[in-house]
Design a protein around this nucleic acid. Structure first.
Lengths: 170, 170
DNA sequence: AGTATACGTCAGTGTTGTTGACATTCCAAC
DNA sequence: GTTGGAATGTCAACAACACTGACGTATACT
């Protein structure tokens, strides 16, 4: 749909994917897809006393074990009061443990307990299943494009956070 | 599929984009990108008494003028009580008008007022600007892939809603 | 000693989601 | 035509989760 027909060398022809209508479709696709993206974990969490905020915290603690509260704050982009409420319940329920830093005793390093890891696994299995199905249906080229556009859509600080995580993980 | 870069004909080679690590990067890309996606309208709305829910309602009323409350409900995926609170303030502030249906008096058809249209324009200009910039940076092929993956990620009902909107708009 | 940083907490507020109860309107069975 | 159920929309109360602002404590840096 984008350009297969644009055989002409005239550059205006190539910009059809930037019309307002195309952009609006992109916006709506993003809206509907994000709903699907969060639907499965939300369903699982609804039965427990947890919500999406807990999922996010668990995800990134799993991804970067030993991360400090401050670091998590920057990644999640919420206030410390908001994160603290979530963290407090997760610690009280024994899903997360917080260890005082060795080199800097002001810092608290966060880790998942075994139970926390199990929940993380359950949640990310559900989310990955949908992502895997979508990726498989779309094919590798589409997936590459998907990632390219999403990265271009982030704020620069988020790009940095994303890239840092990407590198530590791979 | 004709991936130019996958040199091997062995099909297992082609599934590298489905590893758990790749999927997790996709999940995180989605998370960070959605933050950017909503950031600009959120900033504009923060000054007013409105939030993201108001933006969504305004967007889809603009997109499908005369839509009923029930129809909007299905698109937005919230309870009617939740939507009603948002709608009530928008109507009270003169951004939306609700007209009793002619054939079925139970239905209310929703329209933007001139002031509502102005706000919609402001918000969607901001959101489109970011989307346009991301699209332009990524290029037409990446955009096509982006849309393909997002569509595959939606629930089937959402796919229908998305397709219906896409067709009425284009 | 004095300032800055990291973390936790209390109190208050706003948006947005939920459930429950209720009014109005339509339609079909009686 | 009347009645009862289904559909549509409204009002009220409550929960989750974000925000701001202020404060306290422990530790680090200079």
């Amino acid at each position: 749909m984008s350009d297969g027909r644009s055989t002409s060398a005239y550059s205006g022809e190539n910009l059809l994917f930037l019309t307002d209508e195309q952009l609006r479709q992109g916006i709506e696709a993003m809206f509907f897809a994000y709903r699907g993206f969060t639907a499965d974990p939300d369903r699982i969490l609804a039965d427990m006393a947890y919500g999406r905020a807990h999922h996010r915290a668990i995800h990134f603690i799993h991804r970067a074990p030993g991360t400090t509260v401050n670091n998590l704050l920057n990644i999640l982009g919420v206030t410390k009061q908001s994160l603290n409420r979530v963290l407090r319940t997760l610690i009280a329920q024994g899903l997360v443990i917080s260890k005082v830093g060795k080199v800097d005793k002001r810092e608290r390093h966060l880790f998942l307990t075994d139970e926390g890891s199990r929940l993380e696994q359950t949640l990310s299995d559900a989310q990955r299943a949908r992502m895997r199905s979508a990726f498989r249906d779309a094919g590798p080229e589409a997936v590459a494009g998907f990632r390219t556009v999403l990265e271009a859509m982030m704020d620069t600080e988020m790009q940095r956070a994303y890239t840092r995580l990407k590198e530590t993980g791979a």
